[in-house]
Simulated scan of single mutants.
Amino acid sequence: MKIAVANDHAGYSLKEEVKAYLISQGHEVLDFGTDNEEACDLPDYVYPAALAVAEGKADRGIFVDGVGYGSAMIANKIHGLYAAVCQDPFCAELARSHSDTNVLCIGAKIIGSAIALETVRVWMTTDHLGDVEKYKRRVDKVVEISEKHLKKLTEI
């Protein structure tokens, strides 16, 4: 699977660990940076990575910042992206199985690398329960909202 990763200065170190883990699992990683811990603006890195997922250049995205919320706010502004902030494996499992998210956002100031890597592992290996009617129905409603309020990239 092709994974877009991005981070700000607070997420750099953890993003590097996540990236190494993904590569060790056979995934191709598209790294949109940043590549150091110097203060930077999160949208400069997450936005291009989010576009890569939306355009189909990457299958999923994993974004790491201080608490995860900044990355999720950016990603969820883009049609076709469904980002969740997950700070533990349980949330990651539900974000995939119940909500069919395609972007995982992690807060490097919130969790350590061991929990983060397990969160990534669970999120990457959990399938959506789309064959269960209530989860399909709920995801379809979210998609309907997106279709109503967000422009497709082809319309921009």
Rank of each mutant, 00 (worst) to 15 (best):
D88L: 09
D35K: 14
G61Y: 02
Y82C: 13
D44S: 15
V142R: 08
T154I: 07
Y45N: 10
I78W: 02
K151H: 13
N7M: 08
D59A: 13
N102Y: 03
E118T: 14
C86W: 03
L104H: 01
K148H: 09
A50F: 05
E28C: 06
E147S: 12
T34L: 02
V120C: 05
G130D: 14
W123E: 03
T154M: 04
I156R: 05
T125S: 13
H79D: 00
E155P: 01
E55Q: 11
Y82A: 12
V53K: 01
D131Y: 10
G66M: 12
K151M: 13
N76W: 05
R96Y: 07
V53F: 03
L14V: 06
T119C: 15
D140L: 10
A54K: 01
A92H: 02
L81R: 00
A39Q: 12
G56W: 03
N102P: 01
S71M: 04
L153C: 00
E37Y: 04
D59H: 07
T125K: 14
D41S: 15
L81G: 01
G68P: 07
G80E: 02
D140Y: 08
A49P: 01
S13M: 11
M1C: 13
C86E: 06
D127H: 11
E144G: 11
E37N: 09
C105I: 04
A116F: 04
A83C: 13
N7H: 08
V132G: 00
G80D: 03
M124Q: 02
I115F: 09
C91R: 07
G80L: 03
A52E: 05
Y82P: 05
E17C: 10
A10Y: 07
H9K: 07
G130E: 14
D88W: 13
A84K: 02
I111V: 15
Y47C: 10
D88R: 09
V64A: 07
H79I: 01
H128Y: 15
E37F: 03
A6G: 10
L129Y: 08
S13Q: 12
S146Y: 10
C91K: 08
V103R: 02
G68Q: 02
V103D: 04
S99G: 06
G66Y: 10
E133S: 15
K148G: 04
G112I: 06
I23H: 01
Y12P: 00
I115A: 15
C40H: 05
L30P: 00
N102V: 00
P43S: 06
G66Q: 12
L51H: 04
D100V: 11
H149F: 15
T34P: 06
A54P: 04
L22G: 04
E17P: 09
V139G: 07
L153V: 01
S113W: 02
V64S: 06
A84I: 03
S99Q: 11
G130A: 14
S113L: 02
H128V: 05
S146L: 08
G66E: 10
L30W: 00
D44C: 13
L81P: 00
V64D: 05
G107F: 09
V18K: 05
